[in-house]
Amino acid sequence: MTSNINLKINGARYAFSVRDDETLLELLRTRVGLTGVKKACDAIGECGACTVLVGGRAIYSCLYPALRADGAEIVTIEGLAVDGGLNPIQESFLKLGAIQCGFCTPGMILSTQALLEENPEASVQDIHDALSGNLCRCTGYEKIIEAIMMAKQTYAKPVSRRG
């Protein structure tokens, strides 16, 4: 069985015919080619590498039926750039070396984006809370927290122009 859905992904409109059990993760990676959405634990919901924003809220795309997303606005790491440049969170991750292998990074940055949109004054505790669903096997998290604290300062106004 397949059904048709419409999505807005990183500002562009798409129409898909979707298999009933297709996840949003599968759709974004294999059909749109947005490989910044990572697949690691794959539908167990434990790693956060597949995090995307649906209507501005961070969700696990591996546990989200694509059909359920019909009509939704989705932002992936590919959609965060501002006028072709990096967004402040991406910039501070780079600057502070909060990236090693990089596999967790898109998810980390999107979780941060959702956090700072909701609460630009986020404390370290809020950051821990917001990132508890994103595993990193390389950095030990310290640099990531530092990068977010730094991004917070430059985060003057919401940057997800495509929201």
Binding site: G45, A58, L63, A114, N134
Partner: peptide, 8 residues
């Protein structure tokens, strides 16, 4: 869970 779980 995590926020990504609690959101849905």
């Amino acid at each position: 869970g995590a926020i990504q779980i609690r959101n849905v």
